[in-house]
Structure formats: structure tokens, C-alpha cells
Design a protein around this nucleic acid. Sequence first.
DNA 1: CTCAAAACAGGATGATCATCCTGTTTATAA
DNA 2: TTATAAACAGGATGATCATCCTGTTTTGAG
Lengths: 201, 201
Amino acid sequence: MRKKRTNDPEGMRRRVLDVAEDSFQAHGYHASSLGDLMAAAGITGGALHHHFPTKKALALAVIEERVAAAVEETWIAPMRAAPSAREGVRSVFEAVATELEQQGFVRGCPLNNLAHELSLADPDFRSALADIFAGWRQTLADKIRADQLAGGEAGTDPERFAALTVAAYSGAMSMAKAAQDASILRQCLEGLERVEPRPPT
Amino acid sequence: MRKKRTNDPEGMRRRVLDVAEDSFQAHGYHASSLGDLMAAAGITGGALHHHFPTKKALALAVIEERVAAAVEETWIAPMRAAPSAREGVRSVFEAVATELEQQGFVRGCPLNNLAHELSLADPDFRSALADIFAGWRQTLADKIRADQLAGGEAGTDPERFAALTVAAYSGAMSMAKAAQDASILRQCLEGLERVEPRPPT
DNA sequence: CTCAAAACAGGATGATCATCCTGTTTATAA
DNA sequence: TTATAAACAGGATGATCATCCTGTTTTGAG
């Protein structure tokens, strides 16, 4: 009689989020069935229902914990650590492009993928996704302001720079996903680097 | 005994595409059930199956006929008619922003909406969507080349300009959809207009 | 130790969905 | 007119899906 079951609520919750994040990115929210997720995570219906009563609750957790963390890791932290806004943008674009080229296929931007499918589906989804976009732009705008305090970027509007950078990245990832070709990212970066390049007068 | 049924295959096909295009944009492909579409179009299962044997066939028709036409109408035709590439881009951005502000909500870019949900779902979807993106960029690049033949845009790389413009628009629409606020479109346009603004040396 | 709550198991359920099938009606060509 | 295919009707079907429910095991507080 092997009666050994170790309760590990945190670990089980993490495994569910792992497979949900992966499946939502690979197939989307609606195309991911809870049955598939349960099989992939190796858990039962009771356990899944215990941690996430509804599919919506699961998706909200993926957005707030995983998608936000992905943006934090890919964009926010590198930008804060960068010597300047422009150098940060360049290094993030190139890092992502290089990573995509190495792995050979393009899954798209985690935030954009879910934003397109879920923004209109539910107000809770929409506001969670919009908040991540806003924080992303905020970080970029703050970096421009820091550059300006250091004497650079005169004449660059922080919010405008942030909006264009995030838009260009998101759109470039959209095209890269559709074309399954990451090179468009580098093309867009080259264009971005020619925005307001004139020195302060 | 009113026995009057007028066969109108073209009209019926058009009505199906009308409701499918609308529903795919509003709720997405997977969240649109054929039952809902049949009810909205006022047709029977037999008729739907006759014109579109599978849901995939219906979506492919929506992409190739409706989404491509939307890009043609919104971007390609106005760009060809514009006096210059930059003026064309400006007028399209402003026209879309104004239209979105008037209708009060943002559904997103038809191409991007389906591209995100379907690019990884099926190779046929992906290539149809990628072709539309490519044609869009081609039109923009051709316009820059025309400007160059007319003596302007020296130093502007046509493909780079096209890629950044499409990316910025797509990404701006993504954010506008998530935020339900079209103003970010104008912000991105202002940024775009500061790309390579220096005169030829 | 006791016991209540949390964690997990596993199946039931009702709804929904895409597809298919058998007919019937309409249009077209010979 | 007649034959043939296209156009359309309407229901059947089997699969799938999210949620819920009843029960069992584990954990920790008192």
C-alpha cells in the first residue's frame, strides 16, 4: 500500500502556470483546453479547480504573473540597467532578434499575443493587459528623462519616444511571427535609431 | 403554398463572409461558432456547408478577400494616391485615428487581429497573412522609391521605412485596442515623422 | 491526539461545437 | 421537356469542453 502523496500547493500552482503560459503562447487562450493543460501538467481536474476555479482565473494569473514577468525580464530590467535609452533599446532588439534566429521560429510577443485575443473578450483581461503596456512605456519614458537630466536627448519627448518604441517592437514581432522571420526586427531597429537623431541646437 | 426560394449563391456567400468577418474581428476565430454565424447571417447549416465546407475554408476566404481588401482600402490605395510617402502615412494615421475616436472604441487592425490568433495555427493561414503584410510593405517601399525618383527622400532606405511604418502602425493599434484609446496612434505618428528628417547633404 | 481546513482525486454533467448526411428545391443545359 | 448538377434545408452525430460534485488524503493548529 504505497500511500504517499506530498501536498505541494505552490509547486502544483507553478506547474499549472508553466504549462498554461506555454500553451497560451503556442496555441492561444481559446485553443488551449483545460484537459490538455491537465495532461501536460500531470494534474487532475480537482487540483486544477482547487487552484484556479475557472479558466478565466487561470488566464488572469498567467497575464499578471507570467506575461508581466516576461516584459519585466525582457524589457524593463535591461532598460533600467542600460547606459542610455537608445543603447538599451538597441541591445534589447538585438538580443531578441538573436535569440529568435537561434531558436529558428517566432512565437511572437507574449503580451501582444494575449492582448489581441483577450482585450475585447473581458474587461478584466483588457485592463490587466493595458496596465502592462503602460508600465512598459513608463519605463522607456523614464529612461529618456534620465538621459535628459544627464544632458542628452534634448528635444525628445519621452512619451512619444516610448510609444513609438513599444509600437515598433510590437508590430515588428507581429510581422516576424507571420513571416516566421526575425530579420524584420533588425530592420525596424535601424529605422528607430534614425528617429530625432539631430543634436540639440 | 408559398413555394418561393430564390437561389442566390453569390449573395449568400457574401452574407456569410460579412458576418464571419465581423465576428472574427469582434471575438476572434476560435470564439466565433458556426452556429452563431449561421444565426447572424440567417442561413442554414446546409447552405453554410455548401459554400464553405470547413471553418478553415471560411477563415481563409475572410483573410484573402476581406482582410486583404481592408488593408487595400485603408492603406494601399491611399498611399498610391498620396503626393508623397510621408504625406500618405500621415493622412492614413490621422484618418484612422479620427475614425476610431468618432466610433468610440477600438477593434484593432483586422490583419493583426487574425495574424496573432492564426499565424501559428495553420501554415495556410500563416502564408496568407504574411502575404498581406508583404504587399503592404511593398506599397510603402515603392512609394519611397517614387519619391526618390522625384528628387526627395535621399538616404531613406525604402524597405526600412516600410517596415518601421507598418510595425509602428500595427503596434500602435495593438496598444490602442488594449487601452481602448486611439490617441497613441497620433503619438506614434509624431514619432514616425521624426525618422530621418535630415535633408540630403 | 483531535479535528477542521486545505489539498487533491476522479468522474459526472450538460452544453456546445464542427462536421456530415439525407432530402428537397431551383437553375441550367441539351 | 428532361436530365443533371448546383443550391439550400434541417437534423443527426460524435467529440470536446469547462465546470461542478462527491469523496479521500494531507497538513497544521490547538
